[in-house]
């Protein structure tokens, strides 16, 4: 991955974040910074808290302790120590600044590909119909689906749906894009077309926090890789170090070992 992330203060700053579901301690104090223009990928075994962490960043999940800030603004809570939950209007305004792409696409089934993109542009960004339509077409072209603008999600393949999902998120011009296992529900032959779109966004300098099981993709696309297991950050380094045969973290080595046995890395 070329191109250096910029900015001294990180765009996204996660500090000491903890989260429990009932008696299960899912996040046990996570620290993670993402700089403007940086692509950070989180890998690790299932159930390690990767998706939960990602969902905390745009407050689809609440977190119990610690702090998450984007551009200096606390996500989800206000009044510092008092930790008051923000109003729904406030939350909506903040979420508009983070784009998210989901494992199961989650396209609005009653809207066409173009309408899926224009909904947020008109209702949240306040663009006029024509302007929103132009912008939707621009992004549909960018993900190679200009000819599918009028199609409903049910008329698209999984890979096409996910590319619309990406277009929907980036059209909002978010400060950071969150990608939650976006290829896990796809047939193997459709994964490439989706990852190509992500690579082209990275080349444009889009800040991204990615959770993926595509280890090869993580290696090629990321400035930095974070290994998460059992709710903690086990290792955090540029890909070359993570994949180094001298990697000191035992758990990471065995995790990667299982992968390289299955795929040739």
């Amino acid at each position: 991955m070329s191109g250096k992330p910029t900015g001294a203060t990180p765009l996204l700053r996660i500090k000491g974040v903890q989260k429990s579901f009932g008696s299960t301690h899912v996040l046990r104090g996570i620290d993670l910074d993402v700089a403007r223009g940086e692509v950070v990928t989180i890998i690790g075994p299932s159930g390690g808290g990767k998706t939960t962490l990602l969902r905390c960043v745009n407050f689809l999940e609440t977190y119990d302790r610690g702090s998450i800030t984007i551009d200096g603004a606390e996500v989800g809570y206000r009044d510092g120590e008092a930790r008051k939950r923000r109003t729904e209007t406030d939350l909506a305004r903040m979420r508009a600044e983070t784009g998210m792409v989901f494992q199961l696409f989650n396209l609005f089934p009653h809207l066409t590909a173009a309408q899926n993109i224009t909904l947020g542009l008109t209702r949240v960004r306040g663009l006029g119909r024509a302007e929103a339509g132009d912008k939707a077409m621009h992004w549909l072209k960018r993900v190679g689906l200009a000819d599918k603008a009028g199609h409903l999600p049910s008329e698209l393949s999984g890979g096409q749906q996910q590319r619309v999902g990406i277009a929907r998120a980036v059209a909002m011009e978010p400060k950071i894009l969150l990608l939650d296992e976006i290829t896990s529900a796809l047939d193997p032959e459709l994964i490439g077309e989706v990852l190509d779109v992500v690579l082209s966004l990275a080349a444009d300098g889009m800040t991204m926090l990615i959770v993926t099981h595509e280890i090869g993709f993580a290696r090629d696309a990321s400035h930095r890789i974070v290994f998460m297991a059992e709710g903690t950050v086990g290792a955090e380094a540029p890909p070359a170090e993570i994949f180094s045969p001298n990697q000191p973290n035992e758990r990471l080595r065995s995790f990667l070992g299982r992968f390289s046995a299955a795929h040739r890395l």
């Binding site: 979420r95 396209l107 089934p109």
Partner: peptide, 30 residues
């Protein structure tokens, strides 16, 4: 209405009322 659709509505910054009008009700009616 699948929870994922409501999450998607939240993620693009729709308010609860907008999610009801533009996501939940149209999906539910169909």
């Amino acid at each position: 209405v699948p929870k994922g659709l409501i999450d998607a509505g939240k993620a693009i910054g729709l308010t609860p009322w907008q999610r009801l009008v533009h996501v939940r009700l149209p999906t539910m009616l169909r």
